[in-house]
Write a protein that binds this DNA or RNA. Structure first.
Length: 279
DNA sequence: CTCCAGGTTCCGG
DNA sequence: CCGGAACATGGA
């Protein structure tokens, strides 16, 4: 396979691909093999230099969001010790620019699931119902289109270990495929309205909507609050308060982390998930 | 075995 | 607005 250099961007490639944003990248030799939309892509980073299979330069640069001004973004983070620790741990991690349906759908399947299992579900769905792509003799699978999932029975999705999420994914795929919720329209809405529109889909509440906005609609201030973020906020920012309600956490997170709150959130999430010690 | 995971929805205070 | 319970599945 012929590789092309994309230079030396500020990028922590492995961290980015394994930080719980996307769930399908697999180790292949010295790099990573996966799909960017409907294009098979190989990525490799060697001594800070980024390489991609010839022909996929544009897709890779867009997906990896190399145009995000990452040094400026990281400089907007608050200076508190918790965020600084996360920044030190995650420096160079980027918010991927994923296709909106792919991001939305994978997070519909994510509720009450560990990252490893979300990945397993993603791979099963891709392999059974996504388009098969070939790169360097290797098979890669695109995420299934809304219409492909809309055409299935709920039982087909249950068979992919989706559990109660099967009905939500099926119904959401149908709504999107039939235009009941138009993701192209969502892309043009302001953040608040976009979130409301996404929440019309079954299985999409505040957290999943924010994940979709952050990872699939490039809303870099969207701040998903999951169990890890909630733990961090409660125990390290509100440690002395007796009662901390969801509204207080939402208010704090929307205000305290600046114009790139979603980036800060991702750093806090990843750092907490990998280093948290009980007690 | 028990506990918990990148939650949502519905229901009763 | 708030807390609880039901909902499936598998990794730790």
């Amino acid at each position: 396979m012929q590789l092309v250099s994309l230079g030396r961007p500020l990028l922590a490639l492995e961290l980015t691909l394994n930080s719980g944003q996307a769930f399908h990248w697999l180790r292949e030799g010295d790099g990573w093999l996966g799909a960017v939309g409907s294009e098979a892509v190989y990525l490799e980073q060697k001594d800070g230099e980024l390489f991609v299979n010839a022909g996929a330069e544009e897709a890779a640069a867009g997906y990896l969001a190399l145009d995000h001004p990452l040094e400026e973004i990281e400089a907007t983070f608050p200076q508190d010790p918790v965020t600084r620790e996360a920044l030190e741990f995650c420096r160079g991690m980027r918010i991927l620019r994923q296709p909106s349906w792919e991001a939305l759908a994978t997070f519909i399947t994510s509720s009450m699931k560990q990252v490893a299992h979300i990945a397993q579900i993603s791979h099963t769905l891709r392999k059974r119902y996504g388009r098969r792509l070939i790169l360097g003799g290797r098979e890669v699978y695109a995420y299934p289109e809304p219409a492909a999932l809309a055409a299935l029975a709920e039982a087909d999705l249950r068979a992919c270990a989706l559990g109660y999420r099967a009905a939500n994914l099926q119904a959401s795929a149908r709504l999107v495929a039939e235009g009941g919720v138009d993701l192209g329209v969502v892309a043009g809405l302001p953040d608040v309205e976009a979130q409301m529109e996404l929440r019309r889909l079954p299985g999409v509440g505040e957290k999943v909507a924010n994940c979709a906005l952050l990872f699939g609609f490039e809303r870099l201030k969207a701040f998903p609050v999951d169990v890890w973020i909630e733990r961090v906020i409660r125990e390290r920012y509100f440690s002395k308060k007796r009662k901390v309600t969801a509204a207080m956490i939402r208010g704090f997170c929307g205000k305290a982390f600046g114009p790139y709150g979603g980036y800060a959130q991702q750093y806090l999430f990843h750092h907490a998930r990998l280093t948290w010690k009980k007690g």
